[in-house]
Simulated assay, not measured.
Amino acid sequence: MRIDAAQRGKGLILIFILGLSVLSPAFGRAGVQEASTFTSPLLAILPASDVWRASEPPRQFLPETLFEYINGAAESYISYDFQELIVAQYEKKDVPSATLTLEVYDLGEPRNAFGIYGSERYPESRFIPVGAQGYYEDGSLNFLAGRYYVKMMGYDCGPDAEKLLTAVALDVAGRIQDNVGFPAELAAFPREGLVANSERFILRNFQGLAFLRNGFQAGYRLDGLEFECFIVESKDEAAAEAAARQYLDHFRAAGSAVEAKADGWEFQDRYMKNVFVGRRGRYLYGVSRIPEGRQDTGRAYLGKLRSGLGGPQGSAATGGER
């Protein structure tokens, strides 16, 4: 059967129209789901707007495929128990050359999301009130909200880039149900001398030690001194006691002379300088990088940490060396 030119033209027009319906679905939830070849609760987080439209269907990446999207950084995300990533691409309706890439990372738990977020922010970043916290920098806006870490990159958005991205970020943050704040453990860090936004959470291999998990740390500057405080959470008191024993044994094996004190232990390390350690309940905590001659500061901050974790000032953390 022969197909004349008119029929071919109609067929091409029909294919073109169908293609547009797939590549440019409505920005909102329904259009995205219709265009997708997968199902995911993260699709409900994608925003709705009169300003943007989807330029292609969203894509899904799981732990086994994440390297296909962020090859160099995939290991860092997976180390925080990464669950799923949705990537959505948009173009501005009135200026199609202005585009937006939206990435929603599901880390399974809020503290894991804080962990990867904290590893990518800088204390000097310009922070904005989106979700638990966000920051904007050169056409990019990243924020933390519950178990999700959301990253946005705008291209050719002009002088209104921050305003445009912030509007989308607020929409996405408003769709996240478990939009909790920072981990509660951060409140235990002493306020005096704390470097704002230096707090971090390391899920595995805290301080490079395979037996330490769930570690929090924060940087301090005080009277020309720079040092760190840390808190390591265990599942219960017995596990914390075992972690403390293993921690001290590790440094003894490395040549450190561990000295037992009424409120914990003290020792010197080649890299962490003077270190002060205590245990309270299911927490191991400490102060590190204290130079010689400033030990009183280390002891004072060990007491502040103990108080922040609920222990009375001056009480014994564990009752001596093990």
Rank of each mutant, 00 (worst) to 15 (best):
E259R: 13
P47G: 03
R294N: 13
D249R: 13
Y77I: 05
E75A: 15
F201H: 05
A6I: 14
G11C: 02
A188R: 08
G286H: 12
G181K: 08
G115V: 04
G224N: 06
E91H: 14
Y247A: 05
L23N: 09
T65K: 06
R59Y: 05
A254Y: 02
Y301G: 09
G215A: 01
N205M: 11
S198K: 11
R270M: 12
E84Y: 10
Y105I: 03
V277K: 05
L194A: 02
I13C: 03
E226V: 08
L170R: 15
G158M: 09
E56W: 07
L141F: 01
A184G: 02
R282L: 09
G146H: 03
I45P: 00
E199L: 12
F16V: 11
K92F: 08
F206V: 14
K273A: 12
R59N: 10
F82D: 01
V180E: 13
P58D: 00
G293W: 11
V51E: 15
E68N: 14
A317P: 12
G310T: 08
S125N: 15
G298Y: 05
K304G: 06
F230V: 00
G118C: 03
G264P: 09
A254I: 00
S198A: 03
L46K: 06
R8N: 09
N112T: 04
L209Y: 10
S24Q: 12
A98E: 14
E68P: 00
G9C: 01
A167E: 15
E199F: 07
V287S: 08
Q313T: 11
R53C: 02
E259W: 04
P190Q: 07
L66M: 06
L20K: 06
G72A: 13
F82R: 02
G118I: 02
G319V: 00
F61R: 07
D236K: 09
A317Y: 08
W265S: 11
A218F: 06
R175W: 04
L194R: 13
S234F: 01
G293T: 08
E192R: 12
T37C: 01
L18R: 02
V287H: 10
G286L: 10
V287D: 09
G298M: 09
Y149G: 00
A260V: 00
V87R: 13
A242K: 15
L209N: 06
Y220C: 05
D249F: 04
F201V: 05
M1S: 14
Y90I: 03
V195Y: 03
Y136A: 00
Y247P: 08
L194C: 02
V150Q: 04
